[in-house]
Nucleic acid binder design. Structure first.
Lengths: 210, 210
DNA sequence: GTCTATAGAGTGATAGAC
DNA sequence: GTCTATCACTCTATAGAC
């Protein structure tokens, strides 16, 4: 094999090029609506090269999903160390909104996959996922035990609301644009979104500055 | 024609049967992933009958979208008369969550359509939609002017957060189940969701009972 | 590694008998 | 109105020349 030097770098470069094109196509048309031809065209490559690098449409799609989910992890994993509720929440919401802004297509591919019952990533949503979720949630639960945030709200649903609201700006971007009557979502929209959600969450947890 | 008496009622019954089957298929596989054969099988009809009643896959999908959107309207249009903020918000969130619970497939079909840039319903998201949205938002804006709710939050984004959070339980049902480690979302989950979101919104608007 | 040509499977749609 | 048989087309995938 030749995963070294210049030859390996061609492989890598082409794989990345194809993945990138595939993300755009899959996010816009879904799995079944996307054709290998469209991906190849977008990457300026002949169609068989896509098969050469990824074997099949299924495998390419799985590679795209893996790419998308590792993007997610790399953005949010820095934020596991939770010192103080207020700062943590502010940073968490900000990171999530920023991700939706910078990677809307990644978010939409993931959303479509969940929408259809996660046919390609079911295996990642077993018991381990439940445990991971509990770990995240327990950050908030601990603060409730410590008496520093409102003990009456459900920490499970608090997380769901944050996820839903932040991902909304990627997944429902089209509707948000239409509602606001703008062709593009500029920085101020995302800033207002962040501020509004942060205000609501902090108020609900009894952490308002007022 | 024969849109009267027993013959017309067969037409109507079969159309409804097909629409219902189509909703299930489209919501699970998306537009391109759904086959006429699968819809026909689910309705226990031979494939050509679907074409006989709806002409084409496109037209059937459009009929499904219309059905889904009128479901939405009929559920939420009762709620336009806004007397008092607290009651309005409580009822609005409750209605939205109930809709997600009772019509998750309708919500997912709509979500998939928006996700892909609304290729089949773009026409409904023009200037009229923007005006409709402003009308809904102005209910809250008026309350800000009247000084009965927090004037510092963005009313646009308040609505987005409510929409996102309530639809999340339909669109991301699979992930919610996995996170909670349950096979079914029972009544208490939806009750907790409603309560949590209501608490956050009321607190953010300065309407808490405490 | 790259690309042309094509095989092979599946799908939307319709003709035409009942 | 209902259903069998089939056409026409598209798409994934691969063989094989370069």
């Amino acid at each position: 094999m030749n995963q070294d030097s210049s030859i390996g770098s061609i492989r890598l470069k082409n794989r990345e090029l194809i993945i990138h094109s595939a993300i755009r196509e899959f996010s816009q048309k879904g799995f079944s609506g996307t054709t290998i031809q469209a991906i190849a065209d977008r990457a300026n490559l002949p169609k068989p090269n896509v098969h050469y690098y990824f074997g099949s449409k299924d495998k390419l799609y799985q590679a795209v999903l893996s790419h998308v989910m590792s993007l997610w992890d790399s953005t949010l994993d820095e934020l596991t160390h939770a010192s103080e509720p207020r700062t943590f929440i502010e940073q968490y919401i900000d990171k999530k909104i920023t991700f939706s802004r910078e990677n809307p297509e990644a978010s939409r591919i993931f959303a479509a996959e969940i929408l259809n019952g996660a046919p390609y990533i079911k295996s990642r949503f077993g018991g381990d996922y439940h445990n991971w979720f509990c770990g995240r949630r327990d950050i908030f639960k601990q603060w409730q035990t410590d008496g520093v945030i409102n003990p009456d709200i459900s920490t499970d649903h608090l997380l769901f609301i944050i996820w839903a609201s932040t991902q909304h700006y990627a997944d429902y971007e089209f509707q948000v644009k239409a509602a606001l009557g703008t062709r593009r979502l500029n920085a101020s929209v995302y800033r207002d979104a962040t501020n509004t959600l942060t205000t609501l969450v902090l108020a609900g947890l009894g952490l308002s500055q007022t």
